[in-house]
């Protein structure tokens, strides 16, 4: 298994580093988006303080963690379907499917690099925030952060696998991705605390895993909460994974079977 994980990561790193300009543009993009929120904080930061007392009262730190860890939502939601789509478009999916390696392994291991790159991006966000914009990361609880991160990846990935099932059959037009990416950005507390929204919108945000994930991440990093103090976020994340992951796995196998029946496994 480790040979395969290594092979997939090596392949993806080699391909990613062959596009050198892309890496630098991504880095500068990150820096500029941080800068935008830094100046927004300068302008309106103090008015947001009453809503942000649970996280230390600082809007810039709040939003920095929001944008850093929302990238895991994108990675979880999109990487699996992207692997299938790219493989179908490039023609490499068929070449992999002709080997004894199971399709689930191919999809899972092909996504590892995406999560590693996302982790590096999140760390860079935090590092830039800490080094250049004075965000205090000194009190972060590493264990809590790691637990929340793992649960976040599992919860988001379960929706991502569900999304991949649609891509397997329909190729384009994936309702899971559409539904979660738009609703999570608006209602999940990425750019503003959910408390500023009307009650009925807050109720919707409670059924999105990103709401619990970002809340727990902020409390773990900015306030140093221990895992036991985060159970109100950790339990819903476990619940999402426990319900959606089995459903996603069954859906994925049904989708592969259907694609093999209608002969569209490698179509695009």
């Amino acid at each position: 298994m480790f040979n395969k994980i290594y092979a997939f990561i090596k392949r993806d790193v080699t391909i990613a580093t062959s596009y050198k300009l892309s890496f630098f543009l991504r880095f500068f993009g990150m820096f500029f988006s941080i800068l935008v929120f830094y100046f927004i904080d300068k302008l309106f930061g103090s008015t947001a303080t009453p809503y942000l007392m649970d996280y230390g009262g600082d809007y810039f730190s709040f939003v920095l963690i929001g944008i850093a860890f929302t990238s895991f939502l994108w990675a979880g939601l999109k990487s699996f379907s992207k692997v299938i789509r790219r493989g179908q478009m490039m023609g490499t999916l068929e070449a992999m499917l002709i080997t004894p390696t199971r399709i689930s392994t191919i999809i899972l291991f092909s996504s590892i690099w995406s999560f590693i790159a996302t982790s590096v991006t999140a760390l860079l966000y935090l590092a830039i925030g800490g080094l250049f914009f004075g965000v205090d990361l000194g009190s972060a609880n590493i264990l809590s952060t790691a637990i929340v991160l793992v649960l976040t990846i599992i919860a988001f990935s379960s929706f991502g696998i569900l999304s991949a099932s649609f891509i397997m059959i329909y190729k384009e037009g994936d309702p899971i991705n559409w539904l979660f990416s738009s609703s999570s950005t608006l209602l999940g507390g990425v750019f503003f605390p959910i408390e500023v929204m009307p009650d009925w919108l807050q109720s919707i945000s409670k059924i999105l895993p990103i709401t619990y994930s970002l809340d727990a991440m902020r409390l773990a990093i900015l306030k140093g909460y221990a895992p036991a103090a985060l159970t109100h976020d950790i339990l819903p994340l476990i619940g999402f994974s426990a319900i959606v992951m089995p459903l996603a796995i069954v859906s994925f196998y049904l989708a592969v079977n259907k694609a093999k029946m209608n002969g569209s496994l490698t179509h695009y």
């Binding site: 092979a7 090596k10 080699t14 391909i15 070449a95 080997t99 004894p100 390696t101």
Partner: peptide
């Protein structure tokens, strides 16, 4: 974007 050898090693591991 990768070499012929790297391609073959990758697919050999999948085998």
């Amino acid at each position: 974007k990768i070499s012929g050898r790297e391609n073959l090693v990758f697919f050999a591991v999948l085998n």
